[in-house]
C-alpha cells in the first residue's frame, strides 16, 4: 500500500489512484511521420524502467487530476512532490 503524495491532496493510499504509465513513454507528435515498425514500437514497448522513474497516476478517488509520481520500481520508494507556495 504505497503512500502517494498528491500535489493537490497530500499523501494518500495507493488505492485512491490508478497507474497510468511511464512519463517517458510519450505519444509521438506526428504519428503519420512514423513507419509501421516505429509506431508499433511506441504502442507495444514501454520503458519498464528498473529504478527511479517518473510516472503518470490518476487520483481517481480524490482530486481526479493526473499527477506525476517519482517512484523507484526496485523497492517502491517514493519521492515527495514539491508544492507551490502561496496557497491561501
Amino acid at each position: 500500500m504505497i503512500y502517494i503524495d498528491c500535489p493537490h491532496c497530500g499523501e494518500r493510499n495507493e488505492d485512491e489512484f490508478v497507474y497510468g504509465g511511464d512519463v517517458a513513454h510519450r505519444r509521438p507528435e506526428d504519428p503519420a511521420a512514423l513507419s509501421d515498425a516505429q509506431w508499433c514500437n511506441y504502442i507495444y514497448t514501454v520503458p519498464n524502467t528498473k529504478g527511479w522513474a517518473e510516472e503518470h497516476w490518476w487520483h481517481m478517488r480524490g482530486c481526479q487530476r493526473w499527477i506525476t509520481v517519482h517512484r523507484n520500481s526496485v523497492n517502491n520508494e517514493l519521492q515527495s512532490v514539491l508544492r507551490e507556495k502561496g496557497n491561501d
Binding site: 491532496c9 494518500r12 493510499n13 488505492d15 485512491e16 481517481m60 478517488r61 480524490g62 482530486c63
Partner: peptide, 10 residues
C-alpha cells in the same frame, strides 16, 4: 474537508 476514498467509492 477532503475528497477521499470511502470504502469502494469516493
Amino acid at each position: 474537508t477532503a475528497r477521499a476514498g470511502f470504502a469502494e467509492t469516493t
